[in-house]
């Protein structure tokens, strides 16, 4: 027990996490590339046409993974924030900051692909229903987090302020998820959920899940790349940076 705790804290210090992250990046980056290629192959070439929406439904292969990731990433940020506020580890603030831009990108892609899907199928680029509005709020929360952090020069205070925003904002994630059940929305219900069998043909489901895994691997690789940059920027003058960075 005490042994594993020591190990955990060892990797919570930037000096030892930096090289570990560097070793992990190639694995996750290649996993993202391979899974992405398989997912695109299934989704664009192999999956059948949809009975209702024809070929237009293929947007699902990027829309759903991007939307899922935008919600997951926020949850992970909230997790790191809670950890950072509780244990005051430097790594947690850096991890939260490293995840935010990627989460914002996915929230944006979710809205963008959703608009491109909504126009031909529903007949509108955008409607103010509960699902779309709460997803827009998520995008604003990411932007707010990034703006807040960049406005504060002292990294420790920036981390603290960001952590509070991330923790308060996480309430929005279940609102997004359950919005289609709680309120009348134009957006349809979930095709894949834990409470019922997926309402999709197998090939379509397989393509979507492989794409989701690819997005996961991408997010991990990118977050590790960014956290390494943040570590170097914040600790430029420390000894370990001089030892490590030039390797």
């Amino acid at each position: 027990m005490s042994h594993s705790l020591v190990n955990w804290f060892k990797y919570a210090s930037p000096a030892s996490f930096y090289p570990l992250a560097g070793r992990l990046i190639p694995y996750f980056a290649s996993a993202a590339a391979v899974l992405g290629a398989i997912g695109l192959w299934i989704g664009l070439l192999f999956a059948p046409t949809d009975a209702q929406q024809g070929e237009g439904y293929r947007i699902i292969f990027v829309h759903v993974p991007a939307s899922w990731m935008s919600m997951f990433v926020y949850c992970i940020m909230a997790f790191w924030s809670a950890l950072g506020l509780a244990f005051k580890t430097r790594l947690s603030g850096m991890m939260t900051a490293a995840l935010a831009p990627t989460g914002a990108l996915f929230a944006f892609l979710s809205l963008w692909t959703g608009a491109l899907w909504g126009k031909p199928m529903w007949g509108a680029w955008w409607v103010w229903d509960a699902r779309l509005t709460s997803q827009l709020i998520l995008f604003f929360l990411y932007l707010g987090f990034i703006a807040l952090q960049s406005a504060i020069d002292d990294p420790r205070r920036a981390d603290k302020a960001g952590a509070l925003l991330a923790l308060v904002g996480v309430i929005n994630v279940p609102i997004i998820y359950f919005s289609v059940q709680w309120w009348n929305t134009l957006h349809q219900g979930a095709s894949v959920s834990m409470t019922k069998a997926p309402s999709m043909a197998h090939t379509m489901l397989a393509g979507m899940l492989v794409m989701a895994l690819a997005f996961w691997a991408y997010t991990i690789a990118i977050a590790l790349m960014r956290v390494r940059c943040i570590m170097l920027e914040r600790e430029l003058s420390s000894e370990w940076v001089k030892r490590n960075a030039t390797e």
Binding site: T49, D50, Q52, G123, A124, L186, S199, A201
Partner: peptide, 18 residues
């Protein structure tokens, strides 16, 4: 003044739909 289509969450090929 505006009509939007609401579709369900089922995705399947036309043969399966039939």
């Amino acid at each position: 003044t505006e009509v939007l289509a609401k579709h369900d969450e089922n995705y399947m090929p036309p043969e399966a739909k039939d």
